[in-house]
Computed example of a mutant assay.
Amino acid sequence: MPAPSSMHGKAALITGAAAGLGRATALTLARAGADVCLVDINAGALEKTAQECRDIGVHALAYATDLSSADNCRAAVTAALESCGRLDALCNIAAVFIPCHSAEMNDIQWEKTLAVNLSAPFYLIQAALPQLLANKGAVVNVTSCAAHMGQAYLAGYTASKAALTHLTKSLAMEYMHQGIRFNCVAPGGMMTELAQGFRNLRNPDPELLKRYSPLRGLVEIEHVAEMVAFLATDAAAGYHGAVINIDNGITAG
């Protein structure tokens, strides 16, 4: 996997940092020298990640909040700037994943999915733009292989991730003449807490689920984290408007 360049003297905001891909990305950027502002709704686990980053030798803020609120997204960026003094990278990793029969998805589940997976990245980007433009920084949005293919029982999730992909591309076009970079990573299934959601799905059709099962198995979290961190640094200067699939070939055909 590509390696991130040095982030010494720079700062990154990472959402979903309490566990899984967010935690792995935070640690990868910390090892590259970045001070980090870590955001998640799980305060206890978030603080553990922050302490792991501090043990590496960087400054780390644990900022627990619910990103389904636009005001909370803006406050998270403010907290990052106050704590780190600057912002050079924004990694939008937090996600809501609710497998269910579409006819049974209630208003709260639908709205929460779109709020965290799509609206939160937009509000965070919007709030961070002045700093990221000034520092010629980077935004990395984590989408999913589900953004590129219809998947049964995931109407809300696939819709939100497909929209996030095109949000990334649209912002890349809008800011084509500035130094800021917008990219996204689209992983396949990983062994994270999100992946456990299918266990609660009532009476799924196994034939439908089989269609989305990668023949090469699950993707390694660390491999995805390394790509997210790489895109957040100057080492990825040539990437803008890119969508990087890391899915063990599930979208190949």
Rank of each mutant, 00 (worst) to 15 (best):
P2T: 11
A3E: 15
P4T: 08
P4C: 13
S6H: 05
G9H: 01
A12R: 11
A12I: 07
T15Q: 08
A18V: 10
G20Y: 00
A24L: 09
A34F: 03
V39T: 03
D40L: 06
I41C: 03
I41S: 14
E47L: 01
T49I: 07
T49Y: 07
C53W: 00
G57L: 11
H59C: 13
L61F: 05
L67I: 15
S68E: 04
S69K: 11
S69W: 03
A79L: 03
A79M: 02
E82V: 03
L87A: 04
D88A: 05
A89Y: 11
L90C: 08
C100M: 07
S102W: 15
E104Q: 12
I108C: 06
W110T: 05
W110S: 06
E111A: 01
A115N: 04
A115K: 01
L118K: 02
P121D: 09
F122A: 15
Q126N: 13
A127Y: 00
L133F: 12
N135I: 04
K136A: 14
G137F: 02
G137Y: 04
V139Y: 06
N141C: 10
A146M: 06
H148D: 14
A152D: 11
T158V: 13
H166S: 11
E174D: 08
M176E: 09
Q178G: 07
F182T: 05
F182K: 07
C184Q: 06
G189T: 15
M190A: 10
M190V: 10
T192P: 15
L194E: 02
A195W: 05
R199S: 12
R199P: 04
N203K: 14
D205H: 07
L208Q: 15
L208G: 08
R211W: 00
Y212S: 12
S213P: 00
R216N: 13
G217P: 02
G217N: 12
V219M: 09
I221K: 05
V228D: 06
D234W: 03
G238T: 08
T251S: 13
A252G: 06
A252V: 12
